[in-house]
């Protein structure tokens, strides 16, 4: 019964926070209106969500986000150096990254992570969904890069989503 009127508690919480950020102020009227919206919108939309995923380790997810944040900042400097240093010979490469994790959401998170971090972009997923195609801007040893992505991100995601 509770499940029926309140199908997605995390989505509701997210919507409420989102609403308050949009309003940029907290007053009781706004919180009530936001809470009503946060209850009604999931009722209307949750049937369309066919990729429900459970986060098993919320703390690990926070850690992942912080690691990612630091890496994004470092990657900005990295790319800036490549762009600005005169005539540095870059070594681009296209390589496959074999996936260990499964599930649409974890793979999407990993692909987005790769796109946001140092010198790599996810270009494509293989037809069978078991490998990503990565373009790297400047890489000497692509095997080492695969290992790095694996230990730094994929293993963490595997723990977070248990997949």
């Amino acid at each position: 019964m509770l499940n029926k009127i309140f199908p997605a508690p995390r989505l509701s919480l997210f919507l409420l926070v989102f609403w308050l950020l949009l309003q940029n102020s907290i007053s009781s009227g706004l919180v009530v209106l936001g809470a009503v919206l946060a209850l009604l919108i999931p009722l209307y939309t949750h049937r369309g969500r066919d990729f429900a995923t459970k986060i098993h380790r919320p703390l690990k997810a926070v850690e992942y986000f912080l690691v990612l944040l630091v890496d994004i900042i470092l990657s900005n400097f990295n790319i800036a150096a490549i762009i600005l240093l005169p005539r540095r010979r870059i070594q681009p490469a296209l390589f496959e990254y074999p996936l260990e994790i499964t599930g649409e959401v974890p793979i999407t998170v990993l692909a987005s992570t790769i796109s946001l971090t140092p010198g790599t972009i996810t270009a494509e997923i293989r037809r069978d969904g078991r490998a990503l195609l990565i373009h790297a801007l400047n890489v000497a040893d692509h095997e080492a890069m695969i290992q790095q992505i694996k230990t730094r991100y994929e293993m963490r995601l595997k723990e977070i989503f248990k997949c």
Binding site: Q91, P92, A93, L94, F95, E96, A123, E124, R126, R127, D128, L133, H142
Partner: peptide
């Protein structure tokens, strides 16, 4: 640009 794809047609 080095291309390490085994079977590019997969993509």
């Amino acid at each position: 640009t080095r291309d390490y794809r085994d079977r590019p047609e997969q993509y």
